[in-house]
Computed example of a mutant assay.
Amino acid sequence: MLDAAENIYGNWFFNTAQAGAEGFYSFLARLNSLEEARSLVDAGIPVIASVTYGPGELKGSPIEKTRGHLLVIKGFDAGGDVITNDPAAPGPSGVERVYDRQQFSSAWLKNKFGTCYIVARRLNSLLAVKAPFTDFFFSPPKAAGERRKLIESQLVENERVELLELSGSWAKVKALEQASLKADNKTLTPYQGWLPADTLAFSLPLAPAMVVRAKTAGGVSAGVKLRPLRGATPGTVTALFGGRNAVIKLKDLNPLPVKLAPAVLRRKLLDAARLFLGDKYYWGGRSAWGVDCSGLVSLAYRVWGIDVPRNAHDQFHAARRIRKAGLKPADLLFTTDSKKPDYIGHVMLYAGGGRLIEATQDSGDVREVTFTKKFGVSFAALKDGAPVKGRRLFFGRLLK
């Protein structure tokens, strides 16, 4: 796109406007690493990089040197070198060029600070929650009184979504990190629902490196996944979200993937659930500010690197059925809905020693109690699938 006033083709704003006129989403960005570029390329979005280099600084280039040149990053070879389309090539057969990773990094990241265009037909999957948490609804509530009836779940900060539809101030999305079963009770698919559109922000599809293990840390909920930057003070990191920064202590984070011995992992899962003891029960809750029964299980597992289906019925079908005699700490207990005998309406964590941890409407909070207090009969008297207080009780395991 020629900027006639300056007689140049390098006007960033003119170029993005022209791309928009052709039906593309387009914006200027600065990336910090080749891995960030890879994340976009893997998502099907090529990166148009601006490079500067001198003689011999980018071997294999069709031009010896340049103060500013654009080329398209379209992939990486097995050795990590950068596969590009370089428009400076003298003919079509020479357009594809593979550049040395270190030399390309210098030409782009060092000399031009990672400046690039992002141009794509769709950016719907490059979104994440920017609020500390947001409620997630079956359909947009029209009044405050409808919220409990319509709420499905909560999404926490940095949780990825794919935009499906906009309606006024509401966005219909797929919650990419919360799975739900289809009607066949076999196939997991992302939850679909509605949330306020202003809780979303553009986010690169980068693999997270850490997850918050504390109930809250720097105002961030347990279960938030992130890629941290080095903190300004020792023992901390800085997390960048869609509108703010958060300083988080390293002791409040788990590195991903989590690698622990099975017995240790089970203890850690229960420790995570106990962070919520005494909190009020929150229908649909799945954040530090409130949980329901399956939300408690979801977060307890998530902070230790394990994502599980969102609701109790789906967790039941994802779990392996086990006998009571085989129960171990952090295994799950399921009860059917009193009005729907074939539907799992409640899930609890087995705490060992005939005790359980649950977020329950019975007491309106998160509690750790004995089987006797919960069911009116001792743990020894319970049987798999047997009726208890009008419900059937099952035992399941999500861990290997």
Rank of each mutant, 00 (worst) to 15 (best):
D252C: 06
T336I: 08
N11S: 14
I83P: 00
S298F: 14
S106M: 13
L333M: 11
N15S: 11
V47R: 00
R30W: 14
A29H: 11
G364Y: 06
A17Y: 09
G231S: 09
G168Q: 08
K149E: 13
V291F: 03
L299P: 00
V212I: 13
K215E: 10
F371Y: 12
G219Q: 07
V247C: 07
A386I: 05
A318F: 07
Y191S: 05
A273Y: 04
A217G: 04
G56H: 05
P132T: 10
D3F: 02
L181G: 03
S106H: 10
P90L: 15
A120K: 01
D198F: 12
L229F: 13
N7A: 15
K59V: 15
K249H: 12
Y343T: 10
A143H: 12
A21L: 15
L123C: 11
V377F: 12
R147A: 13
A197D: 09
E96Y: 07
L70I: 14
Q154V: 06
E64F: 09
W170G: 06
P255C: 08
R213C: 06
F334W: 04
A261F: 12
A131H: 11
R310C: 05
V72R: 02
S338C: 12
A143F: 10
D3P: 01
V129I: 14
V95Y: 01
V156M: 02
A49D: 02
A17P: 02
Y282T: 12
G20F: 14
A351V: 08
A143Q: 15
G219P: 04
F276W: 09
V237P: 00
K324N: 08
I357A: 01
I306K: 09
K324T: 09
E57H: 10
V224A: 00
I45T: 04
N124W: 05
D3R: 05
V212K: 00
T187C: 13
D81K: 06
R148M: 12
